[in-house]
Amino acid sequence: MNIVLFGPPGAGKGTQAKELSKQYDIPHISTGDILRANVRDGTELGMKAKEYMDKGELVPDEVLIGLIKNRINESDCEVGYLLDGYPRTIPQADALASILGEINKPLDAVLNIDVSDDELVARLGGRRTCSCGESYHMKFNPPEKEDVCNACGSELYQRDDDKENVIRQRLTTYNEKTKPLINYYENLGILVNIDGTGTVDGVFADICKVMDQYK
């Protein structure tokens, strides 16, 4: 099954994708994880991407398209894939359709996790990160000791793109550039809306009901 998991920043795409990857034994392809790894490692690509991420803007297409094409062509995607964080614009969707057509791996469905802007600000603003890679949420998954990582004892920090002013800008960018993809995929007849305001387990169960149709 070839699936895109779609939704605004903070909708829970990454969390759901990781569990869905285990459940259905298909690779989780996350542009966010790839980009953050490059930022953490200080690569040229990472530094270029960070300039845009810190301002709440989308990373340019030329940075992302090559990564996605190479990843989907890897052998573990022969049985299917779960794409998270791409596409984000109509041109990216067109480019993805072209790539998938070349390798005969068209999308089965685009699952849109729907969450309100106010809920998203509350979710993202509570996130804290550690330099060791561990992440927390001050409400939903707090560390044992305030602002200290359970795993290594280092001080936690708030990423620049998790601050409220940047979150609001990210959502504005999403609504202007990415939300039109809802109509794009709806017109193709492959969009499925998922209510993302419930519990993590509840949203997961709703997504599984849809994905079971494509097994």
Rank of each mutant, 00 (worst) to 15 (best):
Asn141Ala: 07
Thr178Asn: 02
Ser154Lys: 11
Thr199Ala: 10
Arg127Gln: 13
Asn73Ser: 14
Ser21Leu: 03
Asn175Asp: 14
Cys132Val: 13
Ala49Leu: 05
Lys145His: 05
Ile207Tyr: 00
Thr89Gly: 07
Val39Trp: 11
Ile3Trp: 12
Ala122Ser: 07
Leu96Gly: 00
Gly125Ser: 12
Ile34Gly: 01
Val79His: 11
Leu35Phe: 07
Val121Lys: 15
Ala37His: 05
Gln213Asn: 14
Met47Gly: 11
Asp201Gly: 10
Leu45Lys: 11
Pro143Arg: 13
Glu119Asn: 07
Ile72Phe: 09
Glu19Asn: 07
Leu96Ile: 00
Lys22Met: 02
His137Asn: 11
Ala95Met: 14
Arg168Met: 11
Ile26Tyr: 02
Leu120Thr: 07
Gln213Cys: 01
Tyr86Leu: 12
Thr15Val: 14
Glu57Asp: 02
Ile103Asn: 14
Gly126Tyr: 04
Met53Thr: 13
Asp201Leu: 15
Lys215Leu: 14
Gly153Ile: 04
Tyr184Lys: 07
Met1Pro: 15
Glu176Ile: 14
His137Asp: 06
Phe140Met: 05
Glu78Ile: 12
Glu57Ser: 02
Pro106Trp: 15
Gln23Glu: 11
Arg123Ala: 03
Leu171Gly: 04
Ile99Asp: 00
Gly14Lys: 09
Glu186Gly: 15
Leu20Asn: 01
Asn150Pro: 14
Glu155Val: 03
Gly7Trp: 07
Glu176Cys: 09
Gly85Asp: 07
Ile68Gly: 00
Glu186Asp: 13
Asp160Pro: 06
Tyr184Thr: 04
Thr129Phe: 10
Val210Ile: 12
Asp25Met: 05
Ile207Arg: 00
Pro27Gln: 06
Pro180Arg: 05
Leu181Glu: 02
Ile65His: 05
Pro142Thr: 12
Ile194Phe: 03
Gly125Arg: 09
Ala17Lys: 08
Thr43His: 03
Tyr185Ile: 02
Leu35Cys: 08
Ser21Gln: 13
Thr172His: 10
Asp84Tyr: 15
Ile90Pro: 01
Cys152Ala: 09
Lys145Ser: 06
Ile68Ala: 00
Leu191Ser: 15
Ile167Gln: 00
